[in-house]
C-alpha cells in the first residue's frame, strides 16, 4: 500500500497537506474578510449606481401616477415604486454591511467602464437617465400626454437598467448581488414588453 513513496515520512506529507489547506483557508479570509466586498468592486459600484438609477425611476413613476387616471398605468407604476424602493433598501443595506462608502466621489459607472485613471473627467452621465429637461416635460404634461412621455422615458431607463444588471451578472461574484441582478433583468424585461405595448396603443392611429 505504501509503495515507492513509502520512504518519505508520513508525518511530513500530512504536515505539507495541512499547511496547504491552511494557506488556502487564510487566503480566502484575507481576500474577503467576513464575506466582505471592497469599495472598488463591481458589487459596490453596482449597488451605488443602481440605487441612483432606481431613485429616478421611482420619481418618474410618482410623477405620472399624479397625472394619469389610467388603471393600467397606475398599477404598473405602483409596482415599480414599491419594487424599486425595496431594492434600493436592499442595496443600501449591503453597502452598510460591507462597510464601504455609499458614493464614489470620482463619479458613477466606473465599475462598468473599466476604471479610467485620473479623476472623473467631469460628469459621466449614467445610461438611460432622464435629463432635467425631460423631467420637466413630464411634469408639465397631463393625462394621456404624460403617459406617453413617461412610457418613452421609462423604456429608455429600463433598457439601460437591464444592461447594468447584465453587466453586474458578468462582473460580480457575490451571491446576493447576482440574485438581485437576475431578478432585475427578468422583472424589467417584462415591464419593457408591457410598456412597449402600452406605448403602441397610445401612439398608433386607431
Amino acid at each position: 500500500m505504501t509503495g515507492a513513496a513509502g520512504t518519505a515520512p508520513r508525518g511530513r506529507r500530512i504536515a505539507a497537506v495541512l499547511a496547504a489547506l491552511a494557506v488556502a483557508a487564510a487566503a480566502l479570509l484575507v481576500l474577503r474578510p467576513g464575506g466582505g466586498v471592497s469599495g472598488d468592486s463591481a458589487e459596490a459600484g453596482f449597488a451605488r449606481d443602481m440605487s441612483t438609477h432606481h431613485a429616478q425611476a421611482v420619481k418618474m413613476a410618482f410623477l405620472v401616477r399624479d397625472r394619469s387616471d389610467d388603471e393600467r398605468v397606475r398599477t404598473l407604476t405602483y409596482d415599480m415604486i414599491a419594487t424599486q424602493s425595496a431594492q434600493i433598501g436592499m442595496m443600501t443595506a449591503w453597502l452598510d454591511a460591507w462597510n464601504v462608502p455609499h458614493t464614489d466621489p470620482r463619479g458613477p459607472m466606473r465599475w462598468m467602464n473599466g476604471h479610467g485613471h485620473g479623476d472623473a473627467s467631469g460628469t459621466k452621465a449614467m445610461p438611460g437617465m432622464a435629463t432635467p429637461e425631460q423631467l420637466r416635460e413630464l411634469e408639465k404634461a397631463d393625462g394621456r400626454a404624460a403617459e406617453i412621455v413617461f412610457l418613452r422615458l421609462m423604456l429608455t431607463h429600463h433598457k439601460a437598467g437591464v444592461e447594468m444588471a447584465r453587466a453586474a451578472q458578468t462582473r460580480a461574484e457575490d451571491e446576493h448581488v447576482l440574485r438581485l441582478a437576475r431578478a432585475m433583468v427578468r422583472g424589467q424585461q417584462a415591464e419593457i414588453d408591457l410598456m412597449q405595448q402600452m406605448l403602441t396603443e397610445r401612439t398608433s392611429p386607431a
Partner: peptide, 15 residues
C-alpha cells in the same frame, strides 16, 4: 521536523 516548522511558520505569517 521541517514539516512542522514550515506548517507553523506559514500559519503564523498568514494570521
Amino acid at each position: 521536523p521541517w514539516g512542522g516548522i514550515i506548517f507553523f511558520t506559514v500559519i503564523g505569517l498568514v494570521a
